[in-house]
Each structure stands twice: as structure tokens, then as C-alpha cells.
Design a protein around this nucleic acid. Structure first.
Lengths: 198, 198
DNA sequence: TTTACTTTATGACTTAAGTCAGGTTGATTT
DNA sequence: AAATCAACCTGACTTAAGTCATAAAGTAAA
């Protein structure tokens, strides 16, 4: 997360994006640094078969889609607003000027990339381990700790739908629903009115 | 990849690591920056059930295990030499001094993190898509393009064993073997004396 | 060139997650 | 309080990948 003032100083525009609108497409070239002012954004893939895989969901203050600015590859996933959103958009060259002239911002960015890699490493290992319950718990605990920054003893009300959990873990809705029920029976989470608490 | 001279100048030691020796363990704290001088290293997880998941295999010139230097988390996977190896090891504080005093090295590192994220994004989407053949092809093509830096028309002799491919894609050896046979029939790769060519 | 060992290969069987179809609950609007 | 819609839930059935057991190549060393 880079300070708003700094972004604006380096030519950032503010984009108003409506819910369910694409911000960039899978396979396109990266030309901007994006950071969310308000709203929520997801990055996703749709595989041949129509199934969605959500690479990540991003919230106010977070940036997304930076890697292809650094390496010459096209976007490995598309980005789409999942609520109405305001988004800072900084041209690539201005972004690099900013990083060069503000090393502390560059270090902040490294933290962001590093923590994203941490998430991917956990989920990769988890997804491969073939245990729906475990995958879901890991996702929830990650969300609780690193996204919501909550302590273990606090109770998180999960705002993800079963479908989103499925798309984040590579499972099907029905499997997620059944796994959540099983987890509830095991006492690992609570379900009240369909909402999950962990 | 940071220049050897620079590393040494900032207090790097050279570690001699024997094949199959651990370099750091899952769950431990990151205290060093590691870069391979010679040999090969893998980062992996062993899940309850004994199955291995390989996060990545790293070759001479590459660094590994950097993310936990930037964020306060423990290693999400262990590192182990898969051949005898020489490894530069730079204490965390020296590493940060280096980055601060050599912004171009910091930019290089961002490229590394970015390309690693790119790989993880591809494999995450691929692993979730549930199609062994596709997962394997993606892995091979990634290796060919980004690790071996080969052109499409050239033929790569894959040096990964079926077991390694399985552990990188979250499949079982038998499944990989069968999928490779199927891919050969489809003309997507060649197998000669057990070795895969793509 | 035998031995030993690792890697690849194949068949038979099992099982867990996917698929499909339909039903229920909960939230929102009129 | 209907009506509507999205999200959640459930059961029956299918299937693709996992499991297990065993064999055949391939490689390296004695």
C-alpha cells in the first residue's frame, strides 16, 4: 500500500468502477499500478469448463496486479470489481519513478509481494493435499489473521459465500457446503443463519 | 539474483551443503538471504499423510526463501539440497543494508518475487482445474520458457522425475505416468527411454 | 555382466469429490 | 405479507484420480 498523496503526486488517476466490471483481462499487458481506494476487487481465472478460480480478493488500501509490471509477462488472471469501487491507477513509468525516488515505498511493496507469496505457498500446499476441510480452515484462518488482522480468540464472521470459498480453494460449492457442515460437527466452526463463524 | 561480489562484500558466507540435507525447516524463522552458487535446492512441504508437495526447485544463480525476510511469518515450507550445493548465506540485516544501498539490486529482487508470483498464480489455477494432463503440460512449458529460457521450437529434455512432477503438481506418480503416456499418444510430448521430451 | 537400486510402467480395485436435480432458507423489495 | 432472488442445503449417482501390488526398464557400481 502506497500513500494516496504520493500516488496522486505521481500522476495517479482515480477510476470509478461499477460492480462486476472488468479492470483488466487475462492475457493483456500490464500498463498500470492499481490500488484500491474503496470497494473490493477479485483476480480470477475461468478455465475451459467455465469453472472459476479466484486468485485473490483485495480490499481498500490494497494493490493488485503488480507482478507483470516487473517481468515481461501478460496478466495470468483477470481483475474484476466485486462491489462498486474507486481505484487509483498509476502509469507504469510513473510507478517506477515513484519507487526509485521513494525507497521506503519500494520496501513496502516488497512486503506486499512477499506476503502474497506466503499466501500462495500455503494455499498451493493445501490445495494439493486433497482435504477439503483442511483447505477451507486454512483459508479462513489466513483471512482472519492476515486480512482481518484478528487474534485467534476473536470470532470472525466470514463474509465469503460458499461459492467464493469454493472458487478460492478449487472445490465445488456442494463440497464446501458439506465440508463446512462436517467442520461444524467437529466444533471447528459455527454456522448461524447460513453465515460461518470461526 | 544478486552479484556474487556484492554478496561477499556484505558479509555473505559460502555454505557447503550435501545432497539431501536440510537448509532450513518448515516453521522456523528467516534469518538469512540464500542464493545458490552451485547445485540444486527444493522447497517443500510434507503433509500429514507423508505426501510431499514441492513449492519450487531452484538452480544456480537463484535465490530462495526471501519472503519471510520481509514479513513477520515463519517459513511456509522447508528447503533441502537435492544435489551437493554451494550456497551464499547473507544475514538478514546485511541483506537489508545491501538493498538500501543498491536500489538496482532491490529492483532485481522485485523481479524475482514477481516472477515467482506469476508461477504460483499459473500453477494455482492449473492445480485447481483438475486436469492432470493440463497441469503437467503447463509445468513443463513453464520450465522450458522461464527456467531453461528455451524457445518454443526447441526441444526440452525434462530432467524432472515422474515423482518430482507429481510433487510439483499435487498428483500421484502413477497418475503422472499415465497422463504422460496419454500426452505422448496425443503427440504433445515424446518419451524415449523413460525420459520426457517437450 | 552380475548385482543392486531407482525409476517407470500396468492392471484391478476403491473412494472421495464431482455432477445433477430438486428443495429449503434467508434477505430484500413491493 | 407476498413475491422474488440469491444463497444454502441434501440425496442419488458417476467418475476420475488414488491406492495397492507387482513387474519391467534403465542406470550405476562392483
Amino acid at each position: 500500500m502506497i500513500e494516496a498523496n504520493l500516488l496522486l503526486q505521481y500522476n495517479a488517476e482515480i477510476l470509478n468502477v461499477e460492480k462486476d466490471t472488468s479492470i483488466f483481462d487475462y492475457g493483456s499487458k500490464a500498463q498500470f499500478y492499481f490500488q484500491i481506494k474503496s470497494g473490493e476487487v477479485k483476480m480470477n481465472n475461468i478455465n475451459r469448463g467455465g469453472k472459476e478460480f479466484i486468485q485473490g480478493i483485495f480490499y481498500a488500501g490494497q494493490s493488485f496486479g503488480e507482478p507483470p509490471l516487473f517481468v515481461d509477462v501478460s496478466y495470468p488472471a483477470g481483475a474484476e470489481a466485486i462491489t462498486d469501487a474507486e481505484i487509483y491507477r498509476l502509469p507504469k513509468s510513473d510507478f517506477f519513478n515513484l519507487l526509485q525516488q521513494h525507497p521506503e515505498a519500494h520496501f513496502k511493496l516488497s512486503e506486499v509481494l512477499a506476503s502474497r507469496l506466503y499466501y500462495k505457498a500455503i494455499m498451493a500446499s493445501e490445495i494439493s493435499s486433497q482435504d477439503p476441510e483442511h483447505r477451507i480452515i486454512r483459508l479462513l484462518d489466513y483471512t482472519k489473521k492476515y486480512i482481518q488482522k484478528m487474534e485467534t480468540y476473536e470470532t470472525l464472521q466470514v463474509d465469503l459465500t460458499r461459492q467464493q470459498i469454493a472458487d478460492l480453494t478449487g472445490l465445488r460449492v456442494e463440497t464446501v457446503i458439506r465440508a463446512c457442515k462436517a467442520l461444524e460437527k467437529m466444533g471447528k466452526l459455527k454456522i448461524r443463519k447460513g453465515k460461518i463463524f470461526r
